[in-house]
């Protein structure tokens, strides 16, 4: 998601001269073939595997206490991570898009750092920083605070992984909107907080939601980083993806795919919401001229 998701071709415009129908047919055919092999077959597989031993086993796999614990931990993580990163995203986008200052380009590239880092490294850095073998980690441990191999570690690693999503969405949006509306508001006597609440926030509403949807999806699905910091304590520090992995490595394929189907369902919801938001978002960008 490194590139700004700039959405889809305006359907009203048709190319000057359409390619010959035969060419179109072949190219569309190839595209469909790719989608079938790489997108739809895996999706279908999840459900066929999950239900291969009947509904009863499917429901049992999902209702198992350990699975429910994983769902709970995942939702808890997302509900902590998303608001924190949303507040950060809005703050950073305000500073970056409404003001000019030295080092802006550097700051913007630093925001993208978590995307460039392997998830495993993202986990590793927090083990190195806060693990019980480090000075800081052992000091925390002496005071009864456990971060690595515990829920706080999962939250912090997820904060890192989903760090850029909201800011990345908002910066181009707010830059395209410019600062005229805010300037108009201050010439009319508005103070900072009112200006933000009455003018800026409504203007970026859809973009903020879009960023939060991406952030939520990633925080629910993150595997590598969370896998490093969780320590795999069953029923204690397992998120849904980790639970899927454990079931799979125990050769419990049906249960593994059953739990995975929850994630697939969430992914489909994400895609749906994302598509709906993209259409509204187009209207938020400045369309003057």
């Amino acid at each position: 998601m490194q590139q700004r998701q700039n959405h889809t071709a305006s359907p009203s415009r048709t190319p000057a001269k359409n390619d010959p129908l035969a060419v179109q047919a072949v190219l569309i055919g190839l595209t469909l073939l790719f989608f079938a092999g790489f997108i739809f077959m895996p999706l279908a597989l999840v459900f066929s595997q999950a239900l291969s031993k009947g509904w009863q086993l499917y429901i049992d796999a999902i209702r198992e206490p350990v699975a429910l614990e994983a769902v709970k931990l995942t939702l808890l993580t997302a509900s902590i991570v998303v608001p924190i990163n949303a507040v950060f995203g809005v703050t950073a986008a305000w500073a970056i898009s409404k003001f000019s200052f030295k080092g802006k380009t550097l700051l913007v590239s630093l925001l993208d750092l978590p995307f460039a880092v392997s998830p495993v490294i993202a986990g590793l850095i927090f083990v190195l920083l806060l693990g019980s073998r480090t000075p800081f980690g052992s000091w925390l441990g002496d005071h009864g605070i456990k971060i690595i191999f515990a829920t706080p570690g999962i939250v912090i690693a997820t904060l890192f992984i989903t760090f850029p999503f909201v800011a990345r969405e908002l910066i181009p949006l707010m830059e395209s909107q410019g600062r005229e509306e805010e300037e108009a508001a201050i010439t009319l006597g508005a103070g900072g907080w009112r200006l933000f609440r009455m003018i800026t926030l409504p203007n970026i509403g859809w973009g903020l939601m879009y960023g939060m949807v991406l952030c939520t999806a990633r925080s629910i699905g993150e595997f590598g980083a969370v896998s490093v910091v969780s320590g795999h304590i069953r029923g204690m520090t397992n998120t849904i993806p980790l639970h899927v992995e454990i079931l799979y490595s125990e050769y419990n394929y049906t249960a593994s795919f059953a739990v995975a189907s929850i994630l697939v369902f969430l992914a489909l919801v994400t895609i749906g919401v994302k598509t709906a938001l993209e259409q509204r978002l187009e209207g938020s960008h400045n369309t003057r001229h």
């Binding site: 509306e181 300037e183 203007n203």
Partner: peptide, 11 residues
């Protein structure tokens, strides 16, 4: 102040 591109509050 009246802005060149009006700067009306769109929402």
């Amino acid at each position: 102040f009246v802005f060149q591109h009006y700067a009306l509050f769109r929402r």
